[in-house]
């Protein structure tokens, strides 16, 4: 479990975040740690830096964590969350430039094979490369 890259899903909607995580677990399996967060602390649409940090901690792996995001604020808040991690862990978290559902499934598939964080990110981003 600890030797695969972890996956974090950050959406503006908790339903989308949870649904995406469900798809990853059902399609890829349970060998990859998947954490998700969506919505602001009041229960509305939005993203929250503390909740993103919690999700990163929940999915933490020594091999790193790949974060999949949806629209604008999810990305900037995820980057902010990464910045707030202690320096030693910052380099082990990447925000992927990929569609959230497809990217999460593909990143998790790659992670399940024991790939490095850079490989997992590259596979997730394959969809937006061309």
């Amino acid at each position: 479990m600890t030797d695969t890259v972890g996956i974090v899903i950050v959406s503006h909607s908790s339903d989308i975040a949870k649904g995406t995580a469900d798809m990853v677990r059902q399609m890829v399996g349970s060998e990859v740690k998947v954490a998700f967060c969506g919505g602001n602390p009041d229960g509305g649409l939005g993203t929250s830096v503390p909740l993103i940090i919690d999700a990163i901690n929940a999915a933490w792996s020594p091999k790193g964590v790949a974060v999949l995001v949806d629209l604008g604020g999810a990305e900037t808040n995820s980057e902010m969350a990464v910045e707030m991690l202690e320096p030693a862990r910052r380099d082990l978290v990447v925000v992927c430039n990929a569609p959230i559902v497809e990217g999460a499934v593909m990143a998790a598939t790659e992670a399940a094979g024991g790939s490095s964080l850079a490989q997992v990110k590259a596979v997730a981003e394959e969809l937006s490369a061309d």
């Binding site: 399609m27 890829v28 399996g29 499934v105 598939t109 399940a112 094979g113 790939s115």
Partner: peptide, 14 residues
């Protein structure tokens, strides 16, 4: 479709 593709890829990676 997606689910078989994931299974095939995961197996290939072994």
């Amino acid at each position: 479709h997606a689910r078989p593709a994931v299974k095939l890829t995961k197996l290939a990676k072994k």
